Computed example of a mutant assay.
Amino acid sequence: MERNYVISINQLADFSRATDAKKRRIIKQQKVPNKFLVAWYQLAKSRIKKTIANNGDLKPILDGIEELKAKKPEKQRQIIDRMVSLDALKRFINIKLPKLLKEIPHEVIKKPKSKSIIINGVEVIISPDVIFKLKIEGKTYIGAVKVHISKNNVFDNQQSRYISSLIYKYLNEVVAKEDEEVMKDLCLSIDVFGEKVITVPKNLKKAIADIEVICEEVKAIWNVA
């Protein structure tokens, strides 16, 4: 029987640095996803996506901060969500987005049906938050952004490089048309609480080779978890 190995891009980054116990926990979550899992920080994430889509215009962020300040949550989960979301939006203001993204008008591309790529038999769900294209000297380039918001689980540079490398691979395999080139400098992993933007590493080949090894480990644990 053929197994379907599936892991999301952020969980893969998490897995790459996790303890053995946490790796097993991540795989168990991927094997039996919780359909009732409530997504956290939705407002913060949507405002950050809007700012990126609008060439770094901070108005959606500033409006989001005011909206969150006006909220009067009662449940503990809502109180935490509001507090962390406010912190995330304030931190995002300090993040320096690439000049290209801010200075050259770009068009946001509709996300394709396929949100994933296969690496070593593992389906890695990329699903970028924003995919865009822009023209420079008559040539069309595309890029994409994945945003990570987690106060207690900030990604290090290596984890973020895995994410930007996977975005690059996904855009090349799934999104880019013949007359479009994927720009490495615009494949961005944004870690909000790490306050950093990481692009594709110079040694992309090594990053992809590392990810292939991680995918082998995903399969090995999947088969026994």
Rank of each mutant, 00 (worst) to 15 (best):
Ile119Tyr: 00
Lys113Ser: 12
His148Asp: 13
Ile109Pro: 05
Arg25Trp: 14
Gly138Gln: 11
Lys102Gly: 05
Lys72Gly: 10
Ser114Phe: 11
Ala21Arg: 07
Val108Arg: 00
Ile48Ala: 06
Val32Glu: 15
Leu62Phe: 08
Arg91Asp: 13
Ile118Glu: 14
Val124Pro: 11
Asn94Phe: 10
Lys71Asp: 12
Asp129Lys: 00
Pro105Leu: 04
Leu97Val: 07
Ile26Pro: 03
Ile80Phe: 13
Asn34Thr: 09
Ile117Asn: 10
Leu97Ser: 01
Glu66Lys: 07
Lys90Cys: 15
Gln42Val: 13
Leu62Gln: 05
Asp81Lys: 01
Asn54Trp: 10
Leu134Phe: 12
Ile48Tyr: 05
Leu86Asn: 06
Gln159Glu: 04
Leu101His: 00
Lys115Thr: 12
Asp156Tyr: 02
Ile79Trp: 07
Ile95His: 12
Ser114Glu: 15
Asn55Leu: 03
Ser114Tyr: 11
Ala53His: 03
Val154Thr: 10
Val147Leu: 13
Asn152Leu: 06
Val154Cys: 07
Val84Asp: 06
Ile118Leu: 13
Lys115Tyr: 10
Ala39Lys: 10
Gly56Gln: 03
Pro60His: 02
Ala44Arg: 00
Lys90Ile: 14
Asn54Ile: 01
Lys90His: 15
Ile48Arg: 01
Ile119Cys: 02
Ile109Cys: 06
Trp40Leu: 11
Arg47Leu: 08
Lys50Pro: 04
Phe132Pro: 01
Leu97Ile: 04
Ile26His: 00
Thr140Asp: 12
Ile104Phe: 05
Pro60Gly: 02
Pro112Arg: 00
